[in-house]
Write a protein that binds this DNA or RNA. Structure first.
Lengths: 116, 116
DNA sequence: CCTGACTACTCTGTACTACTATCTACCACT
DNA sequence: AGTGGTAGATAGTAGTACAGAGTAGTCAGG
């Protein structure tokens, strides 16, 4: 994983996982696989589990143990009301940051064009 | 500063500062003030200086001491070639992440509409 | 003239938190 | 016994927050 990406994931990975859970409940291994499919190719499983444990402790998700055909039972996480609120906050924070950064980028492009 | 914002700044603040320097050279105090103007109202000076020292050590910027009318001499930072490359990388990483997150958000909205 | 208050400016040290790497361990089927 | 799905622990690295110190000018009041 690139160093820049690693740092950027701090503060966003948690939100992304909550967002995934907002679509539908899922378990750790599945979430890892989905993230990998979406291009976060070398995300570490341990990282995802750490996030899941954290959000469970903060009571942002409900947990249900479901037996799987292979291996130990899955822990299926689903977003609860509190988690929904937290996710809303996340979108707010993210939007703010993304807008500022887009602005900065725009500013640079204008500068280069006009040679300010 | 909100906890979520604090975490999100990890990995992005550095890029933002480089982006500011890409527009024109600047010194620490000035950068802090500009960030504050743009809405990052409670960013701490010490945080900015830490980033500046780091990017100087990594040789992403050139430094010039300029006497100021008030107070100690300013350290004016300007982006060098290597810093420019690094900033390009940053935009790449950021774009990737921002796109995925936008996709996730879109997905949630669609889910809510159609009740998938 | 001198002192103290205020502003501009830089830098340092400690604490907190998140992600990574690596490893352990469990379970079921072949 | 081996393979693949599944969960978790631990130690290490790195970035930001916060608090505070230090330096160098200006200006008001005595």
């Amino acid at each position: 994983m690139g160093k820049q990406m690693t740092e950027m994931l701090k503060g966003t990975l948690e939100g992304m996982i909550l967002a995934i859970l907002a679509v539908r409940p899922a378990y750790g291994y599945e979430i890892t696989a989905r993230l990998r499919d979406e291009g976060f190719s070398d995300i570490v499983e341990g990282t995802v589990y750490a996030v899941l444990i954290r959000i469970e402790k903060r009571d942002l998700v409900d947990v249900e143990k479901v037996p799987s055909e292979k291996g130990p039972p899955r822990k299926v996480y689903s977003l609860n009301a509190q988690g929904g609120e937290y996710l809303e906050e996340f979108w707010g924070t993210w939007s703010f940051l993304a807008e500022r950064i887009a602005q900065l980028r725009q500013h640079i492009e204008n500068t280069q064009e006009t040679g300010e």
